[in-house]
């Protein structure tokens, strides 16, 4: 039973209606990210700076709900000439995106308790996106809040009575925001472990 909760990947905070006697699990994860769409237009490279924390609660043997926080850092160094309001700027550009999704998650698990269990899930909630360009001595930065969704698939493997390893793939999509409007989207490939953090006293 406990291992089912470990299926929940990143960190999360439970917010369940029937929180009285539920088991809680924390999780931390590390991963790599591949940007797509507008995010790729700004920073093309694969990111190796991605961390996540989840706190989840078991709603039933096959379902968890929780909260998930992640920190994904993209960066690129480019020599592109940019045009802003009729002004062309050439120079080495150091581009950064810090994406911080804060999601409420629901995950459904398959397979047999105690063994490896595939799962699917989805997270919804705000994404704080901090986008910045350094050129020479100039810095242009913008912080925007987006509404986002993050479907995921993965598998969890128990390695002890209260600890499990897991791996998952998540697609983060943050809807258009800012001026001009930009979406942010990227895939993250994560590995991590989860552990029991307590019972109904949380």
């Amino acid at each position: 039973m406990k291992t089912r909760a470990l299926l929940a990947i990143p960190l999360a905070l439970l917010l369940s209606s029937g929180a009285q006697a539920q088991q809680w699990y924390g999780a931390i994860s590390y991963g790599m990210s591949t940007p797509v769409s507008d995010t790729k237009d700004f920073t093309r490279g694969t990111s190796w700076r991605n961390f996540g924390v989840d706190l989840v609660a078991i709603v039933n043997p096959n379902t968890t709900v929780g909260v998930s926080f992640a920190w994904n850092v993209f960066n690129e160094v480019t020599e592109t000439v940019s045009s802003i309001d009729g002004i062309e700027i050439a120079g080495t550009q150091f581009r950064y995106i810090n994406s911080l999704p804060m999601l409420v998650t629901v995950r459904e698990y398959f397979g047999t308790p105690g063994g490896a269990r595939p799962f699917i899930g989805v997270g919804v909630g705000p994404h704080l996106v901090k986008q910045r360009v350094d050129v020479g001595l100039w810095t242009v930065s913008e912080n925007t809040w987006h509404f986002g969704v993050a479907p995921e698939v993965g598998v969890v493997m128990p390695v002890g009575p209260t600890v499990s390893w897991f791996a998952d793939v998540k697609y983060n999509y943050a809807a258009s925001a800012g001026d001009p409007g930009r979406t942010h989207s990227y895939f993250t490939f994560n590995i991590g472990f989860a552990w029991e953090v307590g019972g109904n006293s949380f």
Partner: peptide, 10 residues
């Protein structure tokens, strides 16, 4: 040299 910047406007 990575700090050099060239700005033009017309």
């Amino acid at each position: 040299q990575q700090l050099d910047v060239v700005v033009t406007a017309h």
